[in-house]
Computed example of a mutant assay.
Amino acid sequence: TVAGGGSGTTGSSLSGPVNAEQPEGTAPDGTLEAVADKVLPSVVSLDVVGPNTRGEGSGVILSADGLIITNNHVVGMAEPAGGITVRLHDGTRAPARMVGGDPTTDIAVIQVETDQPLTPITLGTSATLNEGQAVAAVGSPLGLSGTVTTGIVSALDRPVRAGGAQSDQSTVIDAVQTDAAVNPGNSGGALVNMNGELVGINSAIASTGGSGSIGLGFAIPVDQARRIADQLIKQGYATRAVLGVSVSDTPQGYGALVRSVEPGGPAEQAGIEEGAVITKVGDRVIDDGDALVAAIRSRAPGDIVSVTYAAREGAETTSTDVALGEAR
């Protein structure tokens, strides 16, 4: 008999009539098909040319007049002598210019120059995301525009160096981790919930020797990305919250060791001194230096946060309220 059972008689279902029609969508709300229908017109492909290099990535339409959010590492090479070309969902290509970029948070905003009608993404919130929640990543991996992959929120508040393992703390982002397949070219694209609402900007992947997805993708939470994008649009630059310390990992591998304190900065004013070990910001446990950087950057300048610390490693901990400062 043939694989799959049956008697092996010729004239089986393989020679029967074929239904060439797919079910008419309107797909029910909350299904992946409905999410794709809603989100795909709002996600674009980017071709970026720098003075001596070329790259590609993705972007998300924020407004009907052509504002697009993406990663700074995708479009930053275009300044000052390069160029950005946007490919819309219908295949139309149009030039774009930089509105502003922020390397620290890895967010940039560009303006596409087109008369084409544009479909802005629906903005959601990252504040209520849960581990295990279904999400979809939409972008242009390896130049394949309009690609949709699915997965879940694997973790929240994940400190990630957007510049890779060799980068320093200046590139640390506070990320949403997902197992939705994210590959080179997805950067700057959309991470959406099952209502088709933007919850993150895909930014980085972890890989083991190769350059493809191993189920470890990272997105900048939309609440952070939205605040930075709004500043870039309004004033051309972004600010971030700072504690006023430089930190490293502790020798024992738990907490962030304060290496230096900015004179007159928020930490000094709160009584945190060099040699202190910070173990919590609010309810968030701080495992290492990058975790502290990510936790502070997830806040806005002026926020008042509770910081738990020990005056030195092994000492008893205490908590104090700190009003976060502002830096560009």
Rank of each mutant, 00 (worst) to 15 (best):
V2L: 13
A3D: 14
G4I: 07
S7Q: 11
T9Y: 07
G11T: 03
D29I: 13
A34E: 14
D37K: 15
P41N: 08
S42V: 07
D47A: 15
G50Q: 15
T53D: 14
S58R: 04
I61R: 09
I68K: 09
I69R: 05
I69D: 09
I69N: 13
N71G: 06
H73F: 03
G83M: 00
A94P: 02
P95Y: 01
P95I: 01
A96H: 12
Q111E: 14
T122N: 12
G124W: 08
G124P: 11
N130S: 15
G132Q: 11
G132H: 06
Q133L: 03
V135R: 13
V138Y: 08
G143I: 03
L144M: 11
V148W: 01
G151C: 11
A165M: 06
D168W: 01
V172Q: 01
Q177S: 09
T178H: 10
G188A: 09
L191P: 07
N195P: 00
G196E: 02
S203Q: 04
A204L: 02
I205G: 01
G209E: 05
S213M: 01
G217H: 07
I228G: 10
A229I: 11
D230H: 12
Q235M: 07
T239R: 14
V245K: 00
Q252W: 01
G253F: 05
G253M: 10
Y254D: 12
Y254R: 13
Y254L: 14
L257R: 04
E262Q: 15
G264C: 08
G265N: 00
E268Y: 01
A270P: 10
A270K: 10
A270T: 08
A270R: 06
I272K: 00
E274W: 00
E274I: 00
I278M: 11
D287V: 06
I296R: 04
A300H: 14
P301V: 08
G302P: 05
A315T: 03
E316G: 00
T318A: 13
V322I: 03
V322H: 01
A323C: 01
L324G: 12
L324C: 07
A327W: 02
